[in-house]
Write a protein that binds this DNA or RNA. Structure first.
Lengths: 315, 315
DNA sequence: TTCTTCTTAAAGTTCTGCTTAATCAATGTA
DNA sequence: TACATTGATTAAGCAGAACTTTAAGAAGAA
């Protein structure tokens, strides 16, 4: 039968993106990892990854094995946790992955609350940009993933995982102070075709969302400045160089001067269409052990408070 | 993280029932297995099995780990099969577990048909008496399990497995030739209280089924002879030493002289109650690879033919 | 070009894990 | 009671697997 330790090496390499990075994470030397991969490939009689500059890429067979391997690793981790729990030991570590802007707004208060409730559990937060991270949850590298979906971006399949939406976070049109679209009323995308837009690079979620909304509305927009960081985007808007879409939860903790935000009536219809919003989800394995559901509850609480604060301030 | 090879040792030991038997199956020496178990226990800081005369028994922690370990092993086997399939290799072995009386009647024709269709696939059949075998399927030691349920016996949980009923096999009352209950008509259990019954030892499925039916009917029955083998049971009945319940499919391939079979109206109600019958199921993992569903179809065909033959002969 | 980064090759060392042989414990038998 | 049998463990030694170091090949980037 396939050696599980070798499969683990493949999983780590796939997650890390390169042999050397995986070796680093496992505290091995790079040749050790390379040798194990070679043996695994010889054992299976087919190539699992294509070596190339800047790392490796999985072949079809490699992706197939990765999917199973992630489950194996997750089950092994769960097994250990279950046995220790049965023996009365409490888990000591909870690994959390979140996209950058969640890490700045939603997560801190939940983390603080969790820390108060479980001072003995070590928390580990890492940046994971959607749509990545599902594999890390399956393999147990993450116990909990906070991810999002922007309109126009498909939600990845969550095979074998539990996914739950915790927040609908409206995307507000943000314009420099004094800009006509900032006055009371609901601006339409069609009226903003001439603006200089600020958003992420092609492929970044908010760029995709903006472009698909523009397409639906039948307008062409021009992106003048590219940044994926909403703080930077807001600074640019305050400087008067353009307009952008920013999630409401982000605006709640932003400086209050120099800009105005309005809900955007996206698409052609106006009244009939749902407002533009990103959805925020938590993802974890089935049968989560005890602290995970608790953390989910705390995140839901943080999401609820953020929603209320935002609704109060931005209507 | 937990070493998968050690977990595998635990799974093998649990399935084999003793350290030495597991060592035998893995082509290791007994001390090798013992050492791995010791290390696993030290690693987890708790006992996984109780050593005792005649083998070992799992502790609660051990059973917990076993459940996960079986999944891990099954996933590893599936992973290998999936990669080989993606590389165009066809699976070369199909392991089948069946209870004894299925092995004599239902299985042979399906096996023969499968062999014709896939001469290159090695078939392996092993005896597995219900309610055992689910763990062997989960861990991939078996690709397909043929199991049964007698009335009054609960069906085990099939966590993560696919289970499908392929046959309802009526239990007929079989009496010596000339016995009054063998005449046309539907005998009732209540009228047979004075008989000498033949069935399995306490705990054997048909014994449990008989006793629970008797209890429902409010009669006490006396078991005079104990055998779990239906061939033996039928021979005893033909010798006139008692009566018994025998599945209809078994009777189809039995000598035709010296006995009579009638459907039994079990329980107090009579007409309203379902006839006494055992149910036959196939169990396999989800995402079975190609030959498994085919074998299931062949077994269903064999079951259908057995049902038709039995219905024709015994009404 | 040279430099950097990543992977692989070769050779040596460490260390895990297996085997053999002996010991212990429980049970059944002469 | 002594003795054989079965099954698990301990101890010591050995082999092979896996890791490390060192070096070399490939493919962009400066």
């Amino acid at each position: 039968m396939l050696d599980a330790n070798r499969v683990r090496v493949l999983v780590e390499v796939a997650h890390a993106g390169s042999v050397s990075a995986a070796a680093e994470r496992m505290s091995f030397s790079a040749p050790a990892v390379s040798q194990q991969l070679t043996k695994l490939e010889r054992e299976l009689g087919c190539a699992l990854l294509e070596r190339g500059r800047g790392g490796v890429r999985l072949t079809a067979a490699g992706r197939e094995l990765l999917a199973y391997g992630e489950r194996v690793m997750g089950d092994l981790r769960d097994a250990e946790a279950a046995v220790r729990a049965a023996a009365g030991e409490a888990p000591r570590r909870l690994a959390l992955g979140a996209f950058a802007s969640a890490g700045k707004t939603l997560v801190p208060s939940a983390l603080a609350a969790f820390r108060r409730a479980h001072p003995d559990v070590r928390l580990a937060l890492s940046d994971v940009e959607p749509p990545d991270g599902y594999g890390l949850v399956t393999s147990g590298d993450l116990d909990l993933l906070i991810t999002h979906r922007y309109p126009g971006v498909p939600l990845p399949a969550a095979a074998g995982l539990h996914r739950e939406r915790i927040l609908v976070d409206p995307l507000l049109l943000v314009v420099p102070e004094g800009h006509p679209a900032g006055e009371p009323g609901t601006p339409r995308l069609e009226d903003l075709a001439g603006e200089e837009w600020i958003c992420g690079a092609p492929g970044i979620s908010n760029r995709v969302a903006l472009e698909s909304a523009a397409q639906e509305a039948g307008v062409r927009i021009t992106v003048a400045h590219e940044t994926r960081d909403y703080e930077v985007m807001l600074a640019l808007i305050r400087a008067g160089v353009g307009v952008g879409l920013i999630p409401r939860t982000i605006l709640g903790s932003a400086p209050k001067e120099g800009w105005a935000a309005r809900p955007l009536s996206g698409g052609a219809g106006g009244a009939g269409r749902r407002a533009l919003a990103r959805e925020i989800y938590v993802v974890h394995r089935r049968r989560p052990w005890r602290p995970v559901p608790e953390m989910v509850e705390m995140l839901k609480g943080a999401a609820r408070r953020a929603r209320e604060r935002g609704a109060e301030r931005f209507g």
